[in-house]
């Protein structure tokens, strides 16, 4: 099978295009998805291809974009609702959490809600405090919702296609920093990444690095450096924050007995907290060192570049954390 090197945004665009071709019920709604071609160019060309019925520019109405997508999904369509950036999804929280995630359960299985909420996520472009969130763990708190966030173009395509085909609601975030980065993507219309399946992006025996999305990039860079010193890191890309693939995580930990958690998000009540709790509850007998966490500093993000970068995680911070427990 042919493999092409394409940026993540193109991989996502392909996923949307192919799933819309495959299933008439799939449509896109969101701000600037049509005429503007997507604020991150993920929906480029789709309006031209599929027309206004299936690529729907919406008013700036985050509550109604999410809520109407829920209603349309209940009624049998398969909406992909783009919330532009995850920062704006805070305005959609009720529709996502109280409705998308609850309706199947609350009405005892009478309705399905096969909706995908897409949003760009991440900080580091002087976007400032209100536009720099990576709040995936907040959404992953709630049963009823799946949360996926890819680190490579191939995963991006496969995960989004799986999300669209799923009968369950999925919150799907895409790291803004990763949009332009290329990677190999198989030319396969049925490229699917199973929901809740982690992926080992690099094998190693000394320490497990549990991470996702942009954290994978920092972790792989750190692993490359640490290799020079004889430290072999196993980089586990969780890919889905819910369901969380603890089986893969535990298998890796049994081998390494050490873990560093790397995430772009904030530390309190976080992905890192959850991984640490899972390991100490279930893997205590295998644990040879404290769990270390690398994350954004616990501050709102400022504008000035110098101090913004101070607050962000990076490969060096991952290296430092690994060295503390080796």
């Amino acid at each position: 099978m042919a493999v092409k090197n394409i940026p993540m945004r193109e991989a996502l665009r392909q996923a949307l295009y192919e799933e819309m071709l495959r299933d008439e019920r799939v449509f896109i709604m969101g701000q600037e998805v049509g005429e503007w071609q997507g604020t991150h160019r993920v929906t480029m060309g789709l309006l031209n291809e599929f027309g206004k019925k299936r690529v729907r520019d919406t008013p700036i109405s985050e509550m109604a974009i999410a809520g109407a997508a829920v209603g349309a999904a209940m009624a049998g369509l398969r909406p992909v609702a783009e919330l532009m950036t995850i920062n704006f999804a805070f305005l959609s929280l009720d529709a996502i959490i109280n409705h998308a995630a609850k309706i199947h359960y609350m009405f005892n299985g009478q309705f399905k809600v096969p909706v995908v909420f897409r949003a760009a996520s991440g900080w580091g472009n002087q976007a400032t405090a209100t536009h720099s969130h990576t709040p995936e763990p907040i959404f992953a708190h709630f049963p009823g919702l799946y949360v996926g966030t890819p680190s490579t173009p191939a995963d991006a395509k496969g995960m989004l296609k799986t999300a669209i085909r799923s009968d369950n609601p999925v919150l799907f975030t895409e790291s803004i920093a990763l949009y332009p980065k290329p990677g190999p993507v198989p030319d396969d219309v049925d490229l699917l990444v199973p929901i809740g399946k982690a992926d080992i992006k690099r094998e190693g025996k000394h320490v497990t690095i549990a991470t996702y999305a942009r954290g994978v990039e920092w972790s792989l860079a750190a692993a490359k450096e640490l290799e020079k010193e004889g430290i072999e890191c196993e980089v586990v890309d969780m890919r889905w924050l819910r369901p969380l693939d603890t089986a893969t995580l535990f298998e890796s930990f049994k081998k390494t007995n050490r873990c560093v958690v790397v995430e772009e998000s904030l530390p309190m009540y976080s992905f890192g907290s959850e991984i640490a709790a899972q390991l100490q509850e279930n893997m205590f007998d295998y644990m040879d060192a404290p769990i270390k966490r690398v994350h954004a500093m616990d501050v709102p993000l400022p504008f000035a570049r110098e101090i913004e970068l101070m607050a962000l995680p990076n490969a060096q911070k991952v290296i430092n954390a690994v060295k503390e427990i080796i």
Binding site: G67, A68, G76, D94, A95
Partner: peptide
């Protein structure tokens, strides 16, 4: 399609159900 307990929460659902129609 239900009773909903978050005030106003069902209104966009109505919009979405009508969109399907």
């Amino acid at each position: 399609w239900g009773g909903y307990a978050i005030v106003g929460g069902h209104l966009p659902l109505a919009t979405g159900i009508a969109l399907e129609a």
